[in-house]
Design a binder for these strands. Structure first.
Ligand code: MN
Ligand code: MN
Ligand code: MN
Ligand code: MN
Lengths: 216, 216
DNA sequence: TAAAAAATTTAGATAAGTCTAAAAAATATA
DNA sequence: TATATTTTTTAGACTTATCTAAATTTTTTA
């Protein structure tokens, strides 16, 4: 199988990938908190294993088999996060680091039984979709709160930033997954927003609005 | 903290330790499926970290802090095995390899919550006692089935061998943890034994009797 | 479009954990 | 108790994943 380091690279390439551009060495170095030269070494290894398409200086894309592995790791990560929150009563800001370790437990039989045990959840505690056993993801159409307008309302459904600091702040403002909000006012000076939540008015900065996802 | 390899060495030293003798390099090499020279290297490292007392050529013993770490890993191993059997419905012969990986998940908060979630079980699926949060073990007094006599009876409470082959055999003979048996006859020629189980008579070899533990 | 800047790769080192082969120490045996 | 055998350690090498510094390629900018 693949080493822990290889799995982390594949997952990071997946997260950085989009339809247009390929993923650069520096993007990976930043995300993985390592040096560009280390990334280059690993890219050669992953290319040898046919998990990525890599042309020196041209960045990298996952092959189909690389993407399959990445999706399986993300599936494991999100199912373990769900387990930690729903079964062991952790808060949503406490589970990411643990899941970073647990996602590398190799048994697929284990993860499939865990999935069943929890009733096949579709989203993790941060609103991210959980890939099913075949790697299928249930995308839903989310917008950044910063991109909606006064009087628009909807359900908070995801976060772009997963840092404990941010998640704890949202918790305090009752801006958590599933909560319904509407936009009362947008301050032109700094693009900060005044929101109506289920129980109070909340004033959020544009940075916060830029990292919060909503289903209209 | 400690690496995965260090944790596995500490656990193995613990399992091989007894009151009298210290653990030898070769014993460790055999159990860990590695070479004696590799063991020597690691023993130096663990001694530098004050986790073992090591004198070249004289074998090794855990220090108090080494033992604490070993017991914590064993606690994790056995709690995860319990989880896999009781919550995810694995059989007792399927869980050891998975637990070998899961015992290295670092969070103690996680394992303590898992313990609570499962109702603080005292024994793992193989009858082995689960150390509590302070490393205390609930020893109970078990005898090898090979050491008891005709007409003795008791409850099957543990196994010395954990191989899937052996466990599957026991399952087939309904010689599983908690079952009550009594000795009908011991064949002098080969020390094999005829046992009365709850629903049938079973004839077991002396090898089997030597790996099965009973509470009288 | 040539020079400067930025991004990426190569070269050479290092640390952890393993190995084989050889040397040294401990133990068994005659 | 000397010699043979077994056990253990040492020496030197290899692999994985990382690093720094230097070289190379690409991109930007004047
Ligand atoms: Mn996460
Ligand atoms: Mn998540
Ligand atoms: Mn086990
Ligand atoms: Mn067990």
């Amino acid at each position: 199988m693949n080493t822990l380091a290889e799995e982390n690279y594949l997952k990071s390439i997946f997260h950085l990938s989009d339809a247009e551009e390929s993923v650069s060495t520096n993007q990976l170095a930043t995300l993985l908190n390592t040096k560009a030269s280390s990334v280059t070494d690993m890219l050669k290894k992953l290319a040898d294993k046919a998990l990525i398409n890599y042309t020196p200086y041209q960045g990298v894309r996952l092959t189909l088999s690389g993407e399959k592995i990445a999706l399986n790791i993300i599936r494991k990560h999100r199912l373990w996060e769900y387990f930690l929150v729903e079964k062991l009563n952790f808060k949503w800001d406490q589970v990411h680091e643990m899941a970073e370790e647990m996602e590398h437990i190799s048994s697929n039989e284990l993860i499939n039984r865990l999935d069943k045990f929890m009733g096949y959840p579709k989203f993790d505690p941060h609103g991210d979709p959980i890939p099913d056993i075949n790697g299928q993801i249930n995308h839903h159409n989310l917008k950044l709160v910063s991109a909606i307008e006064v009087n628009d309302s909807g359900t908070i459904s995801g976060v772009k930033n997963h840092s404990p600091n941010f998640l704890q702040y949202l918790e305090k403002q009752t801006l958590t997954i599933g909560k319904i909000i509407s936009v009362i006012e947008i301050i032109p000076f700094d693009q900060s927003m005044i929101l109506q939540t289920e129980n109070k008015e909340v004033h959020i900065s544009s940075e916060v609005a830029n990292n919060l996802l909503i289903a209209l």
